[in-house]
C-alpha cells in the first residue's frame, strides 16, 4: 500500500507543477502511514530526480527508454500502470495537466480506480473515507468529492499547494522497465513543435502573469506588456478577442474557452473582466487590474487596482520593478 506520484520532466528538470504533485503525494502518504514513490516521465536527469527527496519522495522509478522523452499516451499509461502494480499503489497522484488528464483518465479505467481531477486540497481521510475538494463551474465553485473505489487517482491543480523543500534529503533513484514494445508507441507524435515563449516563462506553469486585453489597442503596443513581464519574470497572456484577431497567439488566450491559470500574481491590463475571462483567472492568488474605466467589472474581482491609462501606467510599473532590483 503506497502512494505513487507521477512527475513530469522537461529538458532534464522536474516541472514546477510536479514538485507540487510530489509534495502532495508525500503528504497523502504521511496521512495514510505509508511512503511515496515517484515514477518519472519525460526527459530527466538522475541528479534532479534524486532531489525529489526534498519534497518527501522516498524512491523514484525511471525508465530511460528514449521514446518516452515525448508524451505517448499508451506508453505512458502502461508505464504508470506497471509501476502502480509493482508498488501496490492504492493512491496515484498526478498533475492536472494535459499529460496528467490524458493518462489519469485511461488509468482510472485500466486500474478500476476512482478519479478526481482539478483537485485543490489534501484529502480528508477520517473514518476510512477519502474526500477531496475540487474546482468546479470554471473556478466559480468547489465540490467535495468522495472517491469510493479501493484505488484512487488524484489530478492536482497547479499552484494549489506550495512545494516543500527539505534541503539535503535525497530520494533513491532506481531504473525501471515496463517492457514497452513497438505497439505501445503506435500513437507516438509524428512531430513536436514548441512555442517561442516570451522571456522563457511557460504560461501554464508561470507564477506571475501579465495579461492584455482590447484596451491595449493593437499588437504594436505589446512591448509594454512584455517589458513588465520580463522585469517580473512573468509569462504573458491575453483575452479572447485579442487572440481572435491575431494580435497574440491562441496559446496565450486565458478564460473559460482558453487556458486556466492560477498564478500567485495576475496583472490584467485593459481587460474589462467579462465573466468568461474571469473563469480562467479567478483562482489566481493576487489579481491586479489596470483599466481606465472605474466601472470595469474586473475591479470587483481584484485585490489591487489602478484606474488609469495603460499606456501611462505600464511604463511606470516596469520602471518601479527595475528600481526594486
Amino acid at each position: 500500500m503506497s502512494v505513487l506520484v507521477v512527475v513530469e520532466c522537461d529538458k532534464g528538470e522536474v516541472k514546477k507543477s510536479s514538485l507540487e504533485v510530489a509534495t502532495y503525494g508525500a503528504k497523502v502518504a504521511a496521512q495514510l502511514g505509508t511512503t511515496a514513490t515517484a515514477i518519472a516521465v519525460g526527459e530527466a536527469t538522475e541528479a534532479n530526480l534524486a532531489k525529489l527527496g526534498e519534497q518527501g519522495i522516498a524512491k523514484v522509478l525511471y525508465d530511460a527508454e528514449p521514446r518516452l522523452k515525448d508524451f505517448v499516451n499508451n506508453a505512458y499509461t502502461k508505464l504508470i500502470a506497471t509501476a502502480a502494480e509493482q508498488e501496490g499503489a492504492k493512491v496515484i497522484v498526478l498533475a492536472n495537466s494535459n499529460i496528467g488528464a490524458a493518462v489519469g483518465s485511461r488509468l482510472s479505467v485500466r486500474l478500476k480506480a476512482s478519479l478526481a481531477t482539478n483537485v485543490v486540497d489534501l484529502p480528508k481521510t477520517d473514518g476510512g473515507s477519502f474526500t477531496v475538494k475540487r474546482g468546479a463551474f470554471s473556478g466559480k465553485a468547489f465540490a467535495d468529492v468522495t472517491l469510493s473505489g479501493d484505488r484512487k487517482i488524484i489530478a492536482v491543480k497547479k499552484n494549489s499547494l506550495e512545494a516543500q523543500h527539505e534541503a539535503g534529503k535525497t530520494a533513491e533513484v532506481s531504473s525501471f522497465s515496463a517492457q514497452l514494445s513497438d505497439a505501445d508507441f503506435a500513437d507516438a507524435p509524428k512531430q513536436v513543435v514548441m512555442q517561442d515563449q516570451a522571456g522563457g516563462v511557460l504560461l501554464p506553469e508561470a507564477e506571475r502573469v501579465v495579461s492584455g486585453g482590447r484596451g491595449m489597442k493593437g499588437p504594436e503596443n505589446w512591448h509594454l506588456i512584455e517589458d513588465l513581464a520580463k522585469a517580473l519574470g512573468a509569462a504573458t497572456a491575453c483575452s479572447k478577442p485579442v487572440s481572435d484577431v491575431d494580435w497574440r497567439p491562441h496559446h496565450e488566450h486565458v478564460g473559460q474557452t482558453g487556458i486556466t491559470v492560477s498564478p500567485n500574481l495576475y496583472i490584467a491590463c485593459g481587460i474589462s473582466g467579462a465573466i468568461q475571462h474571469l473563469a480562467g483567472v479567478n483562482s489566481s492568488k493576487v489579481i491586479v487590474v489596470i483599466n481606465k474605466d472605474p466601472e470595469a467589472p474586473f475591479f470587483k474581482a481584484a485585490d489591487y487596482g489602478i484606474v488609469g491609462d495603460v499606456f501611462e501606467v505600464l511604463p511606470k510599473l516596469t520602471a518601479a520593478v527595475k528600481e526594486l532590483g
Binding site: S114, A136, A141, D144, N282, A302, D303
Partner: peptide
C-alpha cells in the same frame, strides 16, 4: 465511482485597494 458530498463558493474578495 465518485460522489459529490457538498458544493461551496469561493471566499469573497476583501475588496479592491486602489
Amino acid at each position: 465511482r465518485t460522489q459529490v458530498s457538498e458544493f461551496a463558493l469561493p471566499p469573497k474578495k476583501q475588496g479592491v485597494k486602489l
